[in-house]
Amino acid sequence: MAQATFRIWRGDQNGGAFRDYTAEVGEGMVVLDCIHQIQATQAPDLACRWNCKAGKCGSCSAEINGRPRLMCMTRLDDRRFIDLREPIIVEPMRTFPHIKDLVTDVSWNYKVNRMIPKFQPRKPDAADGTWRMSQAEVDRIQEFRKCIECFLCQDTCHVLRDHRMMGDTVDGELRELFGGPRFMIRVASLEMHPLDIGDRLQLLKDTLNIGLCNITKCCTEVCPEHIHITDNGIIPLKERVVDRFYDPLMWLWHRIFGDRASRESAQNRTPLPVVSS
């Protein structure tokens, strides 16, 4: 069995440092296996989150050799990310407040989620109170609904990570809030929902500040579910916001007929384009 050095961030809000551990690396192992091994044999209080260990729950997000990754889906023989001759650096997601070791406080994301008005279905299509829709309509939004909320996209988004646009005070200065890629996708999953008649464009523009995204696509790159966050989610939403608020004709329509008309027209709108995967 080969050995590898894991350079793991240890510490809490009061500060921390990298510490080296040696782990046995066997066939097919992933980073999370070694973290567990180190916990069981050398550092019982090493903090990390995990649940399903199969890439389905999105709990074990971390930065591995500088890349936002799920620890359960990063194999130690994956040469793209790992060279066993060098220490493997494992650190917490740096965008969120640190709690301990590999665990960060991601509660901000849950607060943003609460800002998004919930699903509002149209009236049922059938007398028995049920709806009809086509499989094509279902397929169209699958991409957005498969998000596992690992928050790696939030972690890598430079608007959040570098510019700290999280709606709170940084160095004495109040920063705007940017909802981040995850919640653009959440809004897209509602806006494109075949039954939903809610209107969240004002929210996108003024509350989640979609305009702050400048389409660098870093979020798309790190998504473990391979969602085309930017191309299929954020850009079409930006176009809708532009149509509503910055297109002079649409603006006039909106002024004359009001919100209700725009809600009704939203029911009849053409679906968002989808870039094939």
Binding site: K118, G129, T130, R132, Q135, V138, H193, P194
Partner: peptide, 20 residues
């Protein structure tokens, strides 16, 4: 199950548009 759909869950469909 129908209630879940009313809360926003999306299920695969039959050819006539009902829950598969």
């Amino acid at each position: 199950v129908r209630e879940l759909e009313a809360w926003g869950a999306v299920f695969d469909r039959t050819p006539d548009g009902r829950i598969l």
